[in-house]
Design a protein around this nucleic acid. Structure first.
Lengths: 206, 206
DNA sequence: GATTTTACCGAACGAACGGTCAGTAAAGTA
DNA sequence: TACTTTACTGACCGTTCGTTCGGTAAAATC
């Protein structure tokens, strides 16, 4: 990741495309996309501003690459869920697991995606793709309600928003390190809370 | 709200302090705080930029007033919860209800608060106050676990984050209007999902 | 060593930024 | 009408923004 690929003719580059994007997204998330200047991005990578422009086309293009990566990963996870042949509620549970896993694996990219507000054309395109994914997730909830497998006393669209709002909120606080709750622990907690809620019962009492 | 108070000596103002702040916060939320320029704020209120500066001291001060309003409301709601004398789980449920209600009643202000990232001193102070509130909420969850009233198989801090992450995610999509789910419906859905989860049972089957 | 290719940099661009100020218009008081 | 107070404005400040460009340094090929 830190060692760029060799084989070209001229002077070797300091970063791979992905390595540089990782640095950029970290700065976007720390300062905020709007507040992060090209000078900030250049300094974080050790380049001058003009050298930085030699490697990237501009600020918006960087945002596009980053949010596309998040959207592609989330979309692929949902595709995988729909290829399984479980009952509706099993598929919904699978979607929660996979979405949470993608969120943790691609944390900086998904974090950036979830903060996009729609100021530019690129941001609006990202929001459109995101809404499409949300609609597919909401359809899973509706299917589970129609099958009588989950509670029907709350509007399925509302359930979907609250459920995946909970999942997405993980980006607000999760920082992977040695002491952090492992990936599997987070996923199980999310699925457990989503399906059974807070209520104590025989199966989970310590 | 739109009619300023009379009684002063000179020319009457177009807005009350609160009316102007409402306009400002709306622009902050639509464009994003960093992306919203003082020119944007002035135009939204019908002022020139210099007139706008006659009424407000600067961009950061506007942010401070807005997030303080949200923090005061959330803090007061939590105080009220702690004044009740229910069991731990009843207090937790009350905190969820009151926090959700404040979020809906002060939607633009809480929305702005939840997007603060800590770039300036004012933002860092807001984050500190927010963390204090989060800690008090987490203590409620811990107390309910210790009393054996809610499931103990998930780290209480993790439960608290996911729970109030779900509550806070409402700011991402809720837009009050005639067709929207009423306040009470949202609050009941949040409490219902939090306590019982998705699982269908006799009491909520339609 | 000459040539090609790529990485890199200092200086500068116009535009937009947050913010200031001297001066004018409009209202209330006397 | 004269005076005071407040609302309001256009022009302008220095700074920073995203971006461009002419030119130099370094590596690979010949």
């Amino acid at each position: 990741m830190q060692v760029p690929p060799r084989g070209g003719r001229g002077r070797p580059a300091r970063y791979t495309k992905e390595g540089l994007l990782n640095l950029v997204v970290a700065v976007f998330n720390e300062r905020g996309y709007e507040a992060a200047s090209m000078e900030d991005l250049a300094k974080a990578s050790g380049f001058t501003k003009s050298t930085f422009y030699h490697h990237v086309s501009g600020k918006e293009e960087l945002l596009r690459m980053a949010v596309d990566r998040a959207l592609d990963a989330l979309s692929a996870a949902l595709d995988e869920t729909l290829e399984t042949d479980g009952t509706p509620v099993e598929q919904l549970q699978d979607a929660i697991r996979r979405t949470t896993a993608v969120l943790l694996d691609e944390l900086p990219y998904v974090t950036l995606l979830l903060r996009v507000r729609g100021n530019t054309e690129i941001e609006r395109e990202a929001l459109t793709r995101r809404r499409a994914i949300d609609a597919r997730l909401a359809a899973l909830v509706t299917a589970a309600v129609d099958a009588g497998e989950i509670r029907a006393d709350i509007d399925p669209r509302l359930v979907s928003r609250l459920l995946f709002g909970m999942v997405n909120s993980i980006t607000e606080w999760y920082r992977p390190n040695a002491r952090a709750t492992p990936r599997k622990g987070i996923v199980n907690a999310v699925v457990g809370l989503a399906l059974e809620g807070l209520k104590a019962d025989r199966s989970n009492r310590q």
